[in-house]
Write a protein that binds this DNA or RNA. Structure first.
Lengths: 339, 339
DNA sequence: CTGAAAGCGCTTACAG
DNA sequence: CTGAAAGCGCTTACAG
């Protein structure tokens, strides 16, 4: 049913290769008589010709489509990054296929295969697989990809990340300096390096001040509000609960606030909270949460730009790791002792 | 560089059509000797063969990809619906390309063309174009699509919607019954039918109780937190401000709360608020907002199911409009007079 | 049971 | 300036 080059060619009384040349006006080298050029364009418009990208890409070996694999697009942390990537992609004539790994390594593995079958030109991913094997394969095939947020130790590749250890360290230090002695940490799956680094930052800060690391003060959750709520309830229901919480994830922070309300605790008087939280509503939380906030737009922009560079370079030996700055945003969920 | 059927065929010493038959094991009709079958499969695995979907789809005229065009994926209202659609799509072997129209009609128009060039099998869309012309064209071409959230009057097509007028009417009525007399409405672009219906529901409720409709109590905003904040500031800074606000959008509700905090007003004592808000954090807002809440998962599920039905039916004469129920969720942002 | 061939819709060197 | 042809990687009726 769709209109093809052949249809236009027939109607114009020329060969379809001529039509193709006219419609790919990129090369002004190709001289085509103004008369036929105009006629072809007119007919194409009249018939509302839309080139079949499937055929075009099969020929060109490029799809102008990139893949984006995230843990969960419904988490505003990721959806805002995704939006930023999409804006950049659009500016550059690329389309984005977004997929959710749901933090399931096997699923992520399949999604990568699927996207490659779909002939994406490149991939941006927050990897959740336990080892970088598959990415090693991709690199061997010279397939362009960049990591975002998460990456692997001892596996050098393009990545946009933040200083997770430093951020968690500083946040914990802030709590210590404000006289907290019983500080707990609610964190995500430690096999993801960014979670592990944040947890380590927390632990190292405690150690730096010669405080003990109490296992019962470390609660592992998965990426969800309900899991965060559950984790916080567990932590806060102990006989000697902590006076401060460091929550190292977006949704977990919301879950923690829910738990606190459920227990009818006062924040920050009963318990101080610092969250890794980039919710657009953080200002209207009760109370507004002191956060480590991430430059979401910039993460997306840089990830896309880095992918473009990777796609256009011949060999993928050059590797860039970009560490972006976060902001410590003081709000009302922490007792203010000294600043 | 990629492995093709030809590569496998050569290594197995058979014709590539045989390889294709083996790898498309759908038809058990095709009898192939167990011996060659096994050898081919082994070689395919060894070479890590990934079929080229580009070529496959060009031949088959199906891509197992659907398009999803939303105003803004970074709005959690839409990202949660998108996630639900993606889950259904995955179950059925489909991939989703998500695009953002940013509520710009021309952009939406282009995106639809783009996705069709990419040969999507079907489209789910929250349309923002002012008229349904382009969709009329799609229907003439027998291209399968379904509307979601928004639709057009006098344009019959498949759609998943809610009773916007009824919801806004009931919310306004609730405020009236709780003794509010000065009720304002903060709403989105009225050329989108769902915004118009919500505004009409508000107006009709006032009229039903013989209250005047005050233009200064109606504030139009676009889909963003900052716009909602600005709109609420305008409304509330009047000499005789309203005692209650109906906010007919997700992000606008958050913006309204920001404005209220900025003006240091007490909710609900100074002003009651009812929001069309489906933020996962709504429970931890200050105060938790009374909302009209949408069945986001179900919207996604039904939209996908309806699209599948549309894709598989021969003629697209049968049209289904499904109206899903919302919930009135009473929280603490409204003075409770009577229930 | 398997090969040879056509064709999906496009682009582009090769001629002329 | 324009045509004829090859080919991207796949599927599938048509033979045998």
């Amino acid at each position: 049913v769709a209109v093809t080059l052949k249809d236009i060619a027939e109607q114009a009384g020329v060969h379809l290769s001529t039509v193709s040349r006219v419609l790919n006006r990129k090369r002004p080298l190709q001289r085509i008589s103004e008369r036929t050029r105009l006629r072809i364009i007119e007919i194409a418009n009249e018939l509302n010709y839309q080139p079949n990208e499937m055929a075009r890409c099969l020929r060109l070996k490029r799809t102008f489509t990139i893949g984006l694999i995230l843990p969960d697009i419904s988490n505003s942390f990721f959806s805002r990054i995704a939006r930023s990537i999409e804006i950049e992609a659009e500016k550059n004539g690329y389309t984005v296929i977004i997929c959710n790994s749901a933090e399931v390594p096997e699923k992520e593995h399949q999604l990568i295969d699927l996207l490659i079958q779909k002939c994406i030109d490149g991939l941006i991913i927050t990897p959740v697989q336990r080892t970088p094997e598959q990415f090693e394969q991709l690199r061997l095939k010279n397939f362009p990809f960049v990591f975002m947020i998460n990456h692997y130790e001892n596996f050098k590749t393009n990545a946009i990340i933040t200083d997770n250890h430093g951020d968690a360290f500083k946040a914990t230090q802030y709590l210590i300096q404000n006289d907290h002695r019983r500080i707990a940490c609610i964190h995500g799956r430690p096999d993801l390096i960014f979670n592990r680094q944040r947890l380590a930052g927390y632990q190292d800060a405690l150690s730096a001040y010669q405080f003990p690391i109490i296992p019962a003060f470390q609660q592992e959750c998965d990426f969800s509000v309900s899991s965060g709520c559950q984790g916080a309830l567990t932590i806060l229901s102990q006989p000697e609960p902590p006076t401060a919480l460091l929550v190292t994830d977006n949704l977990l922070t919301i879950g923690t606030l829910k738990a606190v309300h459920q227990l009818e605790l006062n924040v920050p008087d009963d318990v101080s909270i610092i969250g890794f939280c980039d919710d657009p509503a953080v200002d209207v939380f009760n109370p507004p949460i002191t956060t480590i906030s991430h430059p979401l737009d910039e993460i997306g922009q840089q990830a896309f730009a880095l992918l473009m560079r990777t796609m256009h370079q011949k060999n993928n030996q050059d590797v860039t790791k970009i560490v972006l700055d976060t902001k410590f945003h003081l709000r009302e969920s922490t007792t203010i002792w000294e600043v």
